[in-house]
Amino acid sequence: MTTVAKDYTLAELMIVQAAEVFRNDGEVLATGIGVLPRLGASLAMKTFNQDLMMTDSEAYLLSEPNPISGRKSHEGQKSETWMGFSRIFDNVWSRKRHAMIGPTQIDKFGQANISALGGTYEQPKIQMLGVRGLPGNSISHANSFFVPSHNTRVFVEGECDLVNSIGYNPERLPKGYVMEDIDIRVILTDLCVLNFKGPNFQIGLQSVHPGITVEQVVAATGFELFIPENVPTTEAPTEEQLEIIRGLDPQDWRSKQLKDNPPGDRS
């Protein structure tokens, strides 16, 4: 029996939705980068997909996810195999992975950018991280994105300033590839859940979070979204899920991830 929660934060709703993206993945490495995606992947592994694999964010795979807060050392964690960075790449290239990361820019093709903004490539206006593992992740395995603040600076009008990851862009499709070779699943934002189920992989609305309107989402997005006839409201977490989340994050780091820690229902 489950009980739908009445009192929950937006961060907790987003953790549960982050967990949902891993529900039907089977036995793959679930990588959630950042507090809320990691809690989502951990929640999925503790509940509806116990076959998931997860790292300690250092060098081991775990048979049980580590709590994200409240630990003083890695001692006592449930390690099952060594998983240093070089083996992570072996895993990536074996395709048995689903990563959820938070890009700085995402465009209408699902291409993402965490490297640089503005200016020229030789002299960007703002240098960020570099392309990191995005080119390899995007062409090797399933990917989802996490956007803590849904706005037109993230969801840009044209292409990303620097295209770090392959998306559903016919102009850039490599020779010998079809669109179906690319596997971008979900974009989870603070306003809604988006997927790529519109015509020709167009980004479309899967659900809007409680108290958010379709119009708000459209206004905060720099490109045209596919809007189905009926857009459901994102489901609330259950009390049982909240209990597990509290166990994974005893120091409530999740409350510090979104500006002003809004309630889950904003109506």
């Binding site: 790449f89 002299q123 240098q127 570099g130």
Partner: peptide, 19 residues
């Protein structure tokens, strides 16, 4: 590194971690 890139003072070969 950020300053060096934003002043255009270094050449780059920017690739994926696995590459």
């Amino acid at each position: 590194f950020r300053k060096a890139r934003q002043s255009g003072s270094i050449e780059t070969f920017e690739i994926d971690e696995g590459m």
